[in-house]
């Protein structure tokens, strides 16, 4: 077991290292940020001063070495644009993203599971067919396009909720979040719904498949043979079996929600780290791009690591397989 965890940890480290190479060299080959940062009529001396200030005159390997050294100490360089440490900039934007992703996850579960349950119980009904057709759309519609439509419908036409930005923050248990104020909620509704759309479809499909499978299984027939009311069979016997895998899978999607929030945040001008990334890419603010990507990689590697370890604890077969390979 310990061997297994150590092996996985080393693998995770290796992945993070490899990604740092790819990301760093990739990002640093593109464009020349100096021309964006120095005014067009600056003379050669100004430009050179800027270059050496940003460390861009050193050989790229040395830049990478400095980056690694800094990274080990939690310093991922300063933003070219803001002059602030990139890591601090990202951490500063992180709560907004987390809040958005979290709301989307909750929406997906709260909307997707009941719809999936219905579609699974009455697969031949018109409503169920409608739900499934909608979920195919949910899967195929590009998020950004749905975002645009949401803005057009709810913010421009109906004027129910504001189109962009994050609302007032409230504080609860010393956590600052827009979920705690009415204004905040009205701001987060559209982006959260937009971000949740794909996951709602996922929840519908997972739940429906699970329900349909479970309904055909012996234990459901047996529960019926015991004379239990349908309500209890569905809510206790079926749902309890399905909720565990569905919620687990949905939880695993949290990482991808954070990844996808790049799109949603850009459309809804949500001040999270995804929007920060796009702005940084457009402005060639390399340290911020690199720092964001490193943090995301770290995040995913961590999620996978935790999942792997949890599974290996829960399922002894995984461990054996790993030793065999």
């Amino acid at each position: 077991m310990t061997v297994f965890i150590i092996r996985r940890l080393l693998q995770a480290l290796l992945v993070v290292f490899m990604m740092s190479v790819i990301v760093f060299f990739g990002v640093n080959i593109v464009g020349d940020p100096v021309y964006m940062l120095v005014s067009p009529d600056a003379d050669q001396a100004d430009i050179e001063a800027a270059i050496s200030r940003l460390g861009l005159d050193r050989p790229i390997l040395e830049q990478y070495w400095l980056f690694l050294k800094g990274a080990a100490q939690g310093d991922l360089g300063d933003s070219f644009i803001f002059g602030e440490p990139a890591l601090r900039l990202i951490l500063h934007h992180m709560p907004a993203t987390m809040e958005l992703a979290f709301s989307a996850l909750i929406l997906a579960i709260v909307i997707g599971i009941p719809l999936g349950l219905y579609a699974g119980l009455y697969p031949e009904s018109r409503m169920a067919k409608g739900i499934m057709a909608a979920s195919i759309f949910g899967f195929s519609l590009p998020t950004f396009w749905v975002g645009l439509m949401l803005i057009m419908l709810f913010a421009v036409e109906l004027r129910w909720v504001p189109a962009t930005g994050r609302g007032d923050l409230g504080s609860f248990l010393s956590i600052q979040s827009s979920l705690f104020t009415l204004d905040g909620l009205s701001h987060i509704f559209l982006p959260a719904l937009n971000l949740a759309l794909l996951k709602i479809s996922l929840a519908i499909r997972l739940t429906r498949a699970g329900v349909r499978e479970a309904m055909g299984l012996d234990y459901v027939k047996y529960a019926r043979a015991k004379g239990l009311p349908m309500r209890r069979i569905i809510l206790v016997h079926v749902m309890k079996n399905i909720m565990i895998p569905v919620v687990t899978v949905m939880g695993l999607e949290f990482g991808s929600l954070i990844g996808f929030s790049v799109v949603t945040e850009t459309i809804f001008a949500w001040p999270g780290m995804g929007k920060l990334l796009i702005d940084a890419i457009l402005q060639l603010d390399r340290p911020v791009v690199v720092a964001y990507l490193m943090i995301i990689v770290l995040f995913f590697v961590l999620i996978n690591l935790i999942v792997d370890i949890l599974y290996s604890i829960l399922d002894p077969r995984v461990r054996l397989q790993d030793q065999g390979a």
Binding site: V15, V23, S256, F260
Partner: peptide, 20 residues
């Protein structure tokens, strides 16, 4: 497996960030 643990959109985004 490793690559598939990242969403494709994120990989693509990383790549365009790197490639231009």
């Amino acid at each position: 497996d490793l690559q598939l643990s990242f969403p494709a959109s994120l990989v693509a985004l990383m790549m365009v960030a790197a490639l231009g």
